[in-house]
Design a protein around this nucleic acid. Sequence first.
DNA 1: CAGTATCCTCATCGATACTG
DNA 2: CAGTATCGATGAGGATACTG
Lengths: 112, 112
Amino acid sequence: MYKIENEAFVCPMEVTLHILNDKWKMFIVYALLDGPRRFKDICEKFPKITQKTISQKLKELEAAHMVNRVVYPQVPPKVEYSLSETGKRIEPMVKAMFDFGVFYAETYGCVE
Amino acid sequence: MYKIENEAFVCPMEVTLHILNDKWKMFIVYALLDGPRRFKDICEKFPKITQKTISQKLKELEAAHMVNRVVYPQVPPKVEYSLSETGKRIEPMVKAMFDFGVFYAETYGCVE
DNA sequence: CAGTATCCTCATCGATACTG
DNA sequence: CAGTATCGATGAGGATACTG
């Protein structure tokens, strides 16, 4: 039994899924694994996600200590998002997900 | 670019998330990693999920070749769900998620 | 550029009851 | 036991427009 910021979790899996289990967060942290990115670049990388949702998800990830937000005081504004040290720890997880996807696509799909 | 059953995916991550990214599926496949389970046992393991949802998620996982469903012809009925060979391939992924959860809880939470 | 503000849709999931 | 049927809630996410 773990307690994190007043929420209780029975199992570590629950903790991980609490942070990352929604429609888009995994995609966003995955995109940040390459390195820091500006808000605009994240939006362009995911044209299917609205600005509003990206903004909201980044906030949630920041609150969960997964993402750092750096504001460069200039005009026009520049804000860079990057994975925190904690956030970088998702790498093995992402790699495993990637590998599974490759296997699955090879087994049930085709490359075009 | 991959094509799987008439759906297109740009990246293997997308494939994996297409199969597993919803509120409950990860929990269900995780529970099946231990071995086959009856419908009832899955329900009891997740009292927070309704029967209806569990039933629906199992169907989707079966359709995605992740889960096998075996009916024992007896009264009262007995149905066992287990991971398919494909389903078992999630193990490294689940392990990585578990490990991340442990790290996260140790860093930001406390054990009780 | 990096967001907010509104308003709204729709899928997901829940509660409850029922059946082969 | 292993589901299905119905109805209903809700909140995540979308569309669009606006701002410092």
